[in-house]
Simulated scan of single mutants.
Amino acid sequence: MGHHGWGGRPPASNAEARQRIIDATARCIDRHGVTKTTLSDVANELGVTRQTVYRHFARISDIVGEVAAQGAESFVDQLVAHLRGVTDPAEAVVEGMVFCVRTIPTEPHLSLLLQLGDSGAFGRGATTGDAIAYGARMLHRFPVDWAAAGLTEDDLGGLAEMIMRLLTSFLQNPSDPAPDEARLRALLTRWLAPALARPSASLPGSG
């Protein structure tokens, strides 16, 4: 790598290098779209060689996944703000689901998760232990007293898994025509909300 790489400002650490690669990838995606963004584009954006990028990420899809994951953090902040004041567990979950189904496809970086196939957060990756644990942490940020509602930590893990599975279905296999918000809210209120209207029973063998 020449001394003019990284725009003349070499990163001070591996963490900074990774973040600058992620930021450069986000700019390339915004400019060219995810399908036309290559590792060479990212290297050129940074003024480094492809090998320099390879030292931090093995594949362009790995960097795209990081762009999407950081978009997810920002999205969760929006979701929590949207739910401010909604303290009923059933209402919070229903409104959260409606917000996700409506908003995720319109968020440029978050919607990348829909384009990562089975490895993405809304493909087979939705049911990994890490994804479910992330979902449970997200539920903890809801303005709901889950313990007072009778939900344990194990219950929140199960609820997070069900939410991820439902979101995967709604986002990857939308109805034709897609339901409007009122119909989606009514569907979730009828079939999902009752499970949160009372303390959930433990599944057989769940401990």
Score class of each variant (00 low, 15 high):
81 A>I: 06
91 E>M: 08
91 E>D: 15
113 L>A: 15
175 S>F: 11
121 A>L: 15
31 R>Y: 06
77 D>V: 13
168 T>S: 08
80 V>W: 04
12 A>I: 09
164 M>N: 15
101 V>D: 01
180 D>H: 09
166 L>D: 13
178 A>W: 09
169 S>P: 02
144 V>Q: 01
188 L>M: 10
118 D>V: 00
79 L>S: 07
171 L>I: 00
203 L>Q: 08
127 T>R: 10
34 V>S: 12
106 T>H: 14
74 S>C: 11
158 G>N: 15
76 V>E: 14
2 G>R: 13
72 A>L: 10
2 G>E: 10
51 Q>L: 12
45 E>C: 01
149 A>T: 09
94 V>A: 02
135 G>H: 01
125 G>K: 00
176 D>F: 10
2 G>H: 13
18 R>Q: 12
91 E>G: 03
48 V>Y: 01
188 L>V: 08
106 T>E: 15
202 S>I: 07
140 H>N: 11
77 D>C: 08
68 A>P: 05
36 K>D: 15
169 S>F: 09
151 L>W: 07
62 D>P: 06
19 Q>M: 12
130 D>Y: 12
161 E>S: 12
184 L>Q: 07
57 F>G: 01
82 H>N: 14
196 L>A: 09
83 L>Q: 05
73 E>A: 14
143 P>K: 08
41 D>I: 00
43 A>I: 01
207 G>N: 07
173 N>G: 05
138 M>R: 14
2 G>W: 07
24 A>P: 02
145 D>C: 02
92 A>V: 05
168 T>L: 02
42 V>T: 01
18 R>Y: 04
6 W>F: 12
